[in-house]
Amino acid sequence: MTRKKVIRIVLWVFVIGLIAAFSSIYYVFNMPRRNLAKENAVYSLEAKQLISDFKKDEASSNAKYLDKAIAVTGEIKSIRTLDNHSMVFSLEDSMEGVSCTVDSADVVVYSSKLSAVKIGSKAAFKGRCSGMLMDIQVINCVPE
C-alpha cells in the first residue's frame, strides 16, 4: 500500500464519520415528539378508577402514572376547544374529572372520530398522564 492510498482511506473514514456524527446530532436535535398512537397503554382503566387513585394518594399515583401512556374510559362531561386549537374532553366530571387533551394536529387527523364523541356518551382516550391539578390531566391524547 502506498502512502497516498493510506491517506485516502483515512480521509474517507473521517468524512463518513463526520457525516454520521452530524446526521445523528441533527436527528437528536430535531427528534420527533412521542407519538401516543404508536405506543401501547401501560395502564388501561376507567376514569373513575384514576380519579379515586389520585384523590386517595397523589404522590404514589404520580409515581405510578406520571409520563406513562395510559388509556382511560369514561363518560364525557364537557368538550372544549382551546385558543391553540387543541381539544379537551373531560371525563366523569368537568371540574374534577380526567381532562384528555388532543393536540391541534391530532384534532385534524382524528376529526371524524372526535366529532362522534358527544357529551353524555362514553369514550376512551390514550395519552400521557401529566398529573393532577383539580382534574387529572392526560395530554397528547388520541381517541381509542
Binding site: L66, D67, L82, D83, N84, S86, V88, S99, T101, R128, S130, G131, L133, M134, D135, Q137, I139
Partner: peptide, 22 residues
C-alpha cells in the same frame, strides 16, 4: 394553555397551578 387558576374576589386571593409537562 392548561393552567388552572382561581380568584376569590371577597378575600382578594389568587391561586395559580400548572403541570410542568404541559
Amino acid at each position: 394553555h392548561q393552567a388552572t387558576t382561581v380568584i376569590d374576589i371577597e378575600k382578594n386571593v389568587v391561586k395559580f397551578s400548572v403541570l410542568t409537562t404541559s
